[in-house]
Amino acid sequence: TTVHLNGVTYTFPNPEEARKFVEKLAKTLNLKVEVHNGTYHIE
């Protein structure tokens, strides 16, 4: 599972880890999250 954040790409072997990371980040920084083909894009 891949996460794109400010031009940096993070790869998680575990989709659940990626989801938790994204949710925590989005909540902390009040960001918008979009998912395209299983890839998270955070703005």
Rank of each mutant, 00 (worst) to 15 (best):
1 T>Y: 06
1 T>F: 06
1 T>S: 11
1 T>I: 07
1 T>M: 08
1 T>V: 09
1 T>P: 06
1 T>D: 05
1 T>W: 08
1 T>R: 12
2 T>R: 14
2 T>M: 14
2 T>I: 13
2 T>N: 12
2 T>W: 12
2 T>P: 07
2 T>A: 12
2 T>G: 07
2 T>Q: 13
2 T>L: 14
2 T>C: 15
2 T>V: 12
2 T>K: 14
2 T>F: 13
2 T>E: 12
3 V>R: 00
3 V>L: 05
3 V>W: 02
3 V>F: 04
3 V>M: 04
3 V>D: 00
3 V>Q: 00
3 V>T: 01
3 V>I: 05
3 V>A: 03
4 H>K: 12
4 H>S: 08
4 H>P: 01
4 H>L: 13
4 H>I: 15
4 H>M: 13
4 H>F: 13
4 H>Y: 14
4 H>V: 14
4 H>R: 13
4 H>G: 02
4 H>A: 07
5 L>H: 07
5 L>M: 12
5 L>Y: 15
5 L>Q: 02
5 L>R: 02
5 L>I: 12
5 L>V: 13
5 L>P: 00
5 L>S: 03
6 N>R: 10
6 N>A: 09
6 N>D: 09
6 N>S: 08
6 N>P: 06
6 N>F: 15
6 N>K: 08
6 N>M: 13
6 N>I: 07
6 N>G: 08
6 N>W: 14
6 N>Y: 12
7 G>T: 05
7 G>D: 06
7 G>M: 06
7 G>Y: 06
7 G>L: 05
7 G>R: 07
7 G>E: 05
8 V>S: 08
8 V>Q: 10
8 V>R: 13
8 V>Y: 12
8 V>E: 07
8 V>W: 13
8 V>P: 00
8 V>N: 08
8 V>H: 10
8 V>G: 04
8 V>M: 10
8 V>I: 11
9 T>D: 04
9 T>K: 13
9 T>M: 13
9 T>F: 10
9 T>V: 14
9 T>S: 10
9 T>L: 13
9 T>Y: 11
9 T>A: 11
9 T>R: 13
9 T>G: 05
10 Y>K: 03
10 Y>D: 00
10 Y>M: 09
10 Y>E: 01
10 Y>L: 13
10 Y>P: 00
10 Y>F: 12
10 Y>R: 04
10 Y>T: 02
10 Y>V: 05
10 Y>N: 01
11 T>S: 10
11 T>V: 11
11 T>A: 09
11 T>M: 11
11 T>I: 12
11 T>D: 06
11 T>P: 04
11 T>R: 13
12 F>T: 00
12 F>A: 00
12 F>P: 00
12 F>L: 03
12 F>C: 13
12 F>H: 00
12 F>R: 00
12 F>K: 00
13 P>F: 09
13 P>K: 12
13 P>S: 12
13 P>R: 13
13 P>D: 09
13 P>A: 12
13 P>H: 09
13 P>E: 10
13 P>C: 15
13 P>T: 11
13 P>G: 09
13 P>N: 11
14 N>Y: 06
14 N>R: 06
14 N>M: 04
14 N>V: 05
14 N>T: 10
14 N>F: 06
14 N>S: 11
14 N>A: 06
15 P>Y: 07
15 P>G: 09
15 P>C: 14
15 P>Q: 10
15 P>T: 08
15 P>F: 11
15 P>D: 12
15 P>H: 11
15 P>N: 10
15 P>K: 08
15 P>I: 08
16 E>M: 11
16 E>L: 10
16 E>Q: 10
16 E>K: 08
16 E>D: 11
16 E>V: 10
16 E>H: 10
16 E>I: 10
17 E>N: 08
17 E>S: 13
17 E>P: 01
17 E>D: 11
17 E>F: 10
17 E>T: 13
17 E>I: 12
17 E>H: 09
18 A>Y: 02
18 A>H: 01
18 A>P: 00
18 A>K: 01
18 A>N: 00
18 A>I: 03
18 A>M: 04
18 A>G: 03
18 A>E: 00
19 R>L: 10
19 R>G: 04
19 R>P: 00
19 R>S: 05
19 R>I: 08
19 R>H: 06
19 R>E: 06
19 R>Y: 08
20 K>N: 08
20 K>A: 11
20 K>E: 09
20 K>I: 10
20 K>H: 08
20 K>Q: 10
20 K>D: 07
20 K>L: 11
21 F>V: 01
21 F>G: 00
21 F>E: 01
21 F>Y: 05
21 F>H: 01
21 F>L: 03
21 F>I: 01
21 F>S: 00
22 V>A: 13
22 V>Y: 03
22 V>I: 12
22 V>Q: 01
22 V>M: 04
22 V>S: 03
22 V>G: 01
22 V>D: 00
22 V>E: 00
22 V>K: 01
22 V>N: 00
22 V>L: 04
23 E>G: 04
23 E>V: 10
23 E>S: 06
23 E>M: 11
23 E>K: 07
23 E>Y: 12
23 E>I: 10
23 E>P: 00
23 E>R: 08
23 E>C: 15
23 E>N: 07
24 K>E: 13
24 K>V: 13
24 K>R: 13
24 K>N: 12
24 K>F: 15
24 K>Y: 15
25 L>G: 00
25 L>R: 01
25 L>T: 03
25 L>P: 00
25 L>E: 02
25 L>M: 06
25 L>F: 04
25 L>W: 08
25 L>H: 02
26 A>T: 09
26 A>V: 12
26 A>F: 06
26 A>S: 11
26 A>K: 11
26 A>N: 06
26 A>W: 05
26 A>H: 05
27 K>G: 10
27 K>Y: 10
27 K>P: 03
27 K>C: 15
27 K>S: 09
27 K>N: 09
27 K>E: 12
27 K>V: 07
28 T>P: 02
28 T>C: 15
28 T>I: 13
28 T>Q: 11
28 T>Y: 14
28 T>E: 13
28 T>K: 11
28 T>V: 12
28 T>M: 12
28 T>F: 14
28 T>H: 13
28 T>R: 14
29 L>M: 11
29 L>C: 15
29 L>R: 04
29 L>E: 06
29 L>A: 07
29 L>F: 10
29 L>N: 07
29 L>K: 05
29 L>S: 06
30 N>Q: 09
30 N>L: 07
30 N>P: 06
30 N>H: 10
30 N>W: 05
30 N>F: 07
30 N>A: 07
30 N>M: 06
30 N>I: 07
30 N>R: 05
31 L>N: 01
31 L>C: 14
31 L>E: 01
31 L>W: 05
31 L>Q: 02
31 L>A: 09
31 L>P: 01
31 L>F: 07
32 K>N: 05
32 K>M: 05
32 K>E: 03
32 K>S: 06
32 K>V: 07
32 K>L: 06
32 K>G: 02
32 K>H: 08
32 K>P: 03
33 V>I: 14
33 V>C: 14
33 V>R: 00
33 V>E: 01
33 V>D: 01
33 V>T: 01
33 V>K: 00
33 V>W: 13
33 V>G: 01
33 V>Y: 08
34 E>W: 14
34 E>Y: 15
34 E>T: 15
34 E>Q: 09
34 E>M: 12
34 E>N: 08
34 E>R: 12
34 E>V: 14
34 E>D: 05
35 V>H: 04
35 V>F: 15
35 V>C: 15
35 V>S: 03
35 V>M: 12
35 V>D: 03
35 V>R: 02
35 V>A: 03
35 V>K: 04
35 V>G: 01
35 V>P: 01
36 H>G: 03
36 H>Y: 10
36 H>D: 04
36 H>I: 15
36 H>M: 09
36 H>W: 09
36 H>Q: 07
36 H>E: 05
37 N>S: 04
37 N>C: 15
37 N>R: 03
37 N>E: 07
37 N>M: 04
37 N>W: 03
37 N>L: 04
37 N>D: 11
37 N>P: 02
38 G>M: 03
38 G>R: 01
38 G>Q: 03
38 G>A: 03
38 G>N: 05
38 G>V: 02
38 G>T: 02
38 G>S: 03
38 G>L: 03
39 T>P: 02
39 T>R: 07
39 T>F: 06
39 T>H: 15
39 T>L: 04
39 T>Q: 14
39 T>G: 10
39 T>W: 06
39 T>S: 14
39 T>N: 15
39 T>K: 06
39 T>A: 14
40 Y>H: 03
40 Y>T: 04
40 Y>G: 02
40 Y>M: 07
40 Y>I: 13
40 Y>W: 13
40 Y>L: 09
41 H>A: 02
41 H>V: 13
41 H>R: 04
41 H>D: 04
41 H>I: 14
41 H>E: 06
41 H>P: 02
41 H>F: 15
41 H>Q: 05
41 H>W: 15
42 I>E: 03
42 I>W: 03
42 I>Y: 03
42 I>K: 02
42 I>R: 01
42 I>V: 11
42 I>F: 08
42 I>T: 03
42 I>L: 14
42 I>P: 03
43 E>T: 15
43 E>P: 02
43 E>V: 15
43 E>G: 08
43 E>I: 15
